[in-house]
Simulated assay, not measured.
Amino acid sequence: MVSWAITGATRGIGLGFVENLSVDPKNQVFALIRSLGTAGPLKELASQRKNIHMILTDISDPTKLDEAAAEVSKVTTGSLDVLILNAGSAGPDTAVLPPSGFHGKKEALDLEIGESIKNNLLSNIYTINSFLHLIRNGQEKKVIFISSQSGNLEFTRQTGFSTLLGYSVSKAGMNMAAAKFAVELAPEGIKTLSLSPGWVNTDAAKAVTGDPEVRKYVLNMFHKVDPNVEGPAPIDEAVSNMLRVIRNLTEADSGKFLTHHGDEEQWF
């Protein structure tokens, strides 16, 4: 039996992980969520599959994360195999501005960077530290950070994307934090990985690229990296690809930032 904990599990990629993993009754799946009010589809799924455990927590609060880890421990008798850090935020409305657009807007820049760092970097470090003692006792011993190609330097250079400043900086920062955990924990057999899901058809993606003109602009940028990309992939396809990479993760790749194809080039 393999135990999995997924943050941000009420919708999108997080819910996709829960759906995929819970099909196998041998998996114990812990859905870490902030509120039951937005968890309708998850609650319905959990009512049908008894290996899904919903746990309320706040990833910005280390105390509540410690309590969530204690709840997981009660079910698994003190262990966790795989922790998937999926929760995050695209940031404030100022994400549409390039770096120079913040000139004279100190408060806006502080918020753009600060909120993204809090939601996409600090909260994930809090989560790892709260669950680390369970990972140490697990069989798989894997910590997976769901990153983004937006946090990759070469992808940014090639596509020409100058916006999503806070989001990109925070994702890149968490990629580095994951590498730091990897080198620290390697002697214990614990492996980490930053993993890009690609362009996925989530509600968040639709909010950004739903407008036809915006979608055309984004595609033009993406075509500089991959001329064949036509649109976002279905959630189930993206999750299946990522799980293949996660299951194949070895010490040799621990701490790396890989695509959902398991390499460092195929972003779509």
Rank of each mutant, 00 (worst) to 15 (best):
T202L: 14
D236R: 12
G231F: 01
Q149V: 14
F155H: 02
R157F: 02
D211Y: 07
V183S: 09
N152A: 12
A182T: 09
M174R: 00
I146Y: 05
N137V: 01
S168L: 07
Q139N: 13
M174L: 09
I135E: 03
V169A: 12
W199V: 10
V218H: 00
R136Q: 15
R136G: 14
D226Y: 05
K171H: 08
H223T: 03
G138C: 15
T159L: 02
A238M: 04
A204W: 07
V200W: 15
M174D: 02
A205W: 10
T202V: 04
V208Y: 03
P197A: 03
E237L: 15
M174V: 06
E188P: 08
S170E: 08
T159R: 03
G173Q: 03
E213L: 10
Q149C: 11
E213N: 13
P234A: 14
P187W: 06
A177N: 12
T163R: 05
P227G: 06
Q149E: 15
G151N: 10
P227C: 10
L164H: 11
A186R: 03
V229C: 13
G189L: 13
Y217G: 06
P232A: 09
E230S: 04
F155W: 04
E230I: 00
G198P: 03
T156S: 06
M221W: 10
A186K: 07
E213V: 14
A204T: 07
N201L: 13
S240H: 06
A238D: 05
I235H: 13
F181H: 04
K141D: 09
L219C: 04
I146S: 02
S148M: 07
S194N: 08
I144Q: 10
R215C: 00
D236Q: 15
M176F: 08
D211A: 13
P234E: 15
P234M: 15
A207C: 03
S196E: 13
L185D: 02
E188R: 09
E140V: 14
F145S: 08
A186E: 09
H223G: 00
D226C: 11
N201M: 15
A182L: 09
A205V: 06
D226R: 06
G198Y: 10
N241Y: 04
V183T: 07
Y167P: 02
G198D: 12
L219R: 13
Q139Y: 02
E188N: 05
A177W: 02
S148R: 01
E230A: 02
F145E: 06
V218T: 03
A207Q: 14
V214F: 07
Y167Q: 11
G231Y: 01
V239G: 05
K180Y: 01
K171Y: 11
V239P: 00
W199F: 13
Y217A: 14
F181V: 08
E140C: 12
M176I: 08
E230V: 05
G189A: 04
F222H: 01
D211F: 01
N228Y: 08
A172G: 15
A207V: 02
S170D: 07
S196C: 12
M176Y: 04
A233N: 09
V214A: 12
